[in-house]
Amino acid sequence: MTASPLIYTAEQALARLKRGNERFLAGKARFPTVQKEVLAELTRGQQPYATVLGCSDSRVPPELVFDAGFGELFIIRVAGNVLGPTIAGTLQYAGSYLHTPLFVVMGHEGCGAVQAALDVRFGGATYGNRVEILLENILPALDVLDPGLSREQLLHAAVEANVRWIMRELRESPEGRARLAAREMMLVGAVYELDTGRVRFLED
């Protein structure tokens, strides 16, 4: 499996995502329909400029909020935008074979999976076996939180903490350390605001 030389740098890819979200917010999205010529071209292969790890929530479709067309983004979606063996393998594929220069971990305000993890940590809630396995990936991110915050403040802080925890795991993985050291990728975190449609990119 090979890919063509990179068309965009990580910085250019991030700028494209930001401009796309601005068009989305302004109601000026570029892709209301898909041209047949575009689909035909994509049968030859893909070269996405960014990989996005996001939540499965139906209200947060990355292609729409970044106003990105077919073939532009490599999307991985799972409840709570968590990491696991298959997710990590998919990310490794994106880096090793698609060579996307930009990796984005994107959570969203009001995330149900993060709220469920909060209920487990601070409320003693229990869920079904498979849901519990999912939540175990979020629980370590909650260690830095102040349980004295209001429910709304706690969820807001937890969503961002979860994104930062996942970024830390990616940075500390052997592949992440190697690619970051070689400046072969940029890793950024983001939070999508459900009420406005804005993507807030996190500062390190």
Rank of each mutant, 00 (worst) to 15 (best):
I7G: 01
Y8C: 02
Y8Q: 08
T9L: 00
A13Y: 05
L14Q: 05
L14N: 02
R19P: 05
G20E: 08
R23C: 08
R23N: 12
G27M: 11
R30L: 12
F31G: 07
P32R: 09
T33A: 11
V34A: 13
V34P: 04
A40C: 08
L42P: 02
Q46S: 09
C55P: 00
S56A: 15
V60F: 04
V65H: 03
F70D: 14
L73D: 04
F74G: 02
I76D: 10
V78M: 00
N81D: 06
T86C: 10
G89N: 12
T90C: 15
Q92V: 10
S96Y: 12
H99A: 11
L102Y: 04
V105H: 08
M106T: 03
G107T: 03
G110C: 08
Q115W: 01
Q115L: 12
A116G: 08
V120F: 08
V120D: 06
G123M: 09
A125P: 05
A125N: 08
L135C: 05
E136V: 00
E136G: 12
E136L: 12
I138R: 10
L139Q: 06
L142W: 11
R151L: 11
A157G: 05
A161C: 10
A161R: 14
V163T: 07
W165E: 15
I166K: 14
I166P: 01
E169F: 00
P174C: 03
R177K: 15
A178I: 00
L180C: 09
A181G: 04
M186L: 13
M186D: 07
V191R: 13
E193N: 15
V199H: 09
V199Q: 09
V199E: 08
L202M: 10
